[in-house]
C-alpha cells in the first residue's frame, strides 16, 4: 500500500532521504516503514521520529511538510511515483533511473542531476546545476524527461547527454553549458553564456530569443521535417511552446569554439 508521510517539524540537521523509495515503501507495513533509518548529521533518525505515517489513497508515495532540510528525495529511484508537497532541499531525483517524481513546490541545487530515465516535474523553481553532472562525471542528465514550470538557476543541464529538459520560466547563466547532446527547451529568458562550449544537442526557445554569442553561426538550410517532428512533440508542453509547429524556425550552429555541432532553434 502507499503512504502519506507528513513531516512534523523540520529536523535539526539535514536529512538524507535516499532510503525512502516508493516501490520499496509500498511493500512495507506502516511499522516497518517507521523504522526506516535516515542518515542525519553523524547519526541516523528513524522515519517515524520525524514523520506522521498515514495510508494514502493514491498510487503515489506522498511526502509533505516543510521539506527544506530534506536532501536526495527520490534519488536513484527505479520505479513508482513520488509526490512531494513543499519546498525541498538539494539533489531531488539525483541519478533517477525510472518512475516519476512530482514536486508541488521548488527545489534547491542539483535537482535531476545525473538522471538517466524516468520523469521529474517541478511546479516551482529549481536552483543551480539542475540536470547537470556530478563532480568528476563526464555526463550530466543522460535520459528521461525533466520539466520545470518555474525558473532555473545557473549551469542548467551542464554536460547533459540525452533526454528532454524543459524550463517554462527563466534560466540563469551558462544554461546548457558543455551540452553533449539531448534536447533543452526554454520558455523564458536566458542568462549570459547560453550554450557555452556545447558540442552537440538542441536548444529550442519557446519565448524570447536570446542574443547568441559570437561562436554561433546562422544556417539557413531546410530542416522542415525535423522541426515538425520536434515542434509537434514540444507543443504538448503548452505555455510558450503552444503552436510551435506553426512557427517558422531559425537555426544557429555552435559552439564553434569547441567545433560544436549543436544547434539553437529560434522560432519566429
Amino acid at each position: 500500500m502507499t503512504y502519506r508521510l507528513t513531516l512534523r517539524r523540520p529536523p535539526p540537521l539535514r536529512l538524507d532521504m535516499r532510503a525512502l523509495q516508493p516501490a520499496r515503501a509500498a511493500a512495507l507495513t506502516a511499522a516497518e516503514l517507521g523504522r526506516l533509518e535516515l542518515p542525519s548529521g553523524c547519526g541516523t533518525l528513524a522515519l517515524a521520529e520525524v514523520f506522521d505515517i498515514a495510508p494514502a489513497g493514491t498510487e503515489a508515495l506522498v511526502v509533505e511538510g516543510d521539506l527544506e532540510r530534506l536532501d536526495f528525495l527520490g534519488a536513484g529511484m527505479e520505479e513508482g511515483t513520488l509526490e512531494l508537497h513543499g519546498t525541498v532541499g538539494d539533489a531531488l531525483g539525483l541519478g533517477l533511473r525510472g518512475g516519476a517524481i512530482r514536486l508541488d513546490g521548488s527545489a534547491r541545487d542539483l535537482a535531476g542531476c545525473a538522471m538517466s530515465g524516468g520523469a521529474i516535474e517541478v511546479s516551482g523553481d529549481v536552483r543551480d546545476l539542475a540536470a547537470s553532472a556530478l563532480p568528476g562525471d563526464l555526463d550530466g542528465m543522460r535520459g528521461g524527461r525533466f520539466v520545470i514550470h518555474g525558473d532555473a538557476g545557473a549551469r542548467l543541464g551542464d554536460r547533459m547527454r540525452r533526454g528532454t529538459l524543459v524550463v517554462h520560466g527563466d534560466v540563469g547563466e551558462f544554461a546548457a553549458s558543455r551540452l553533449v547532446a539531448g534536447t533543452v527547451a526554454l520558455g523564458g529568458r536566458c542568462g549570459a553564456h547560453l550554450g557555452y562550449g556545447m558540442r552537440r544537442g538542441t536548444i529550442v526557445f519557446g519565448g524570447a530569443a536570446p542574443e547568441p554569442g559570437p561562436t554561433f553561426v546562422p544556417l539557413d538550410s531546410d530542416i522542415g521535417v525535423f522541426w515538425q517532428l520536434l515542434a509537434r512533440e514540444l507543443e504538448g508542453l503548452g505555455g510558450a511552446f503552444a503552436g510551435l509547429a506553426r512557427r517558422r524556425v531559425e537555426r544557429l550552429a555552435g559552439d564553434l569554439s569547441v567545433r560544436g555541432r549543436g544547434e539553437l532553434l529560434v522560432p519566429k
Partner: peptide, 17 residues
C-alpha cells in the same frame, strides 16, 4: 535525435537533410 521515445537520424544532403 530522440523525439517522443523514437530515435531519428538527420543526414545532411544537398537539398537540406
Amino acid at each position: 535525435k530522440v523525439i517522443g521515445g523514437a530515435r531519428y537520424w538527420r543526414v545532411p544532403v544537398m537539398d537540406g537533410e
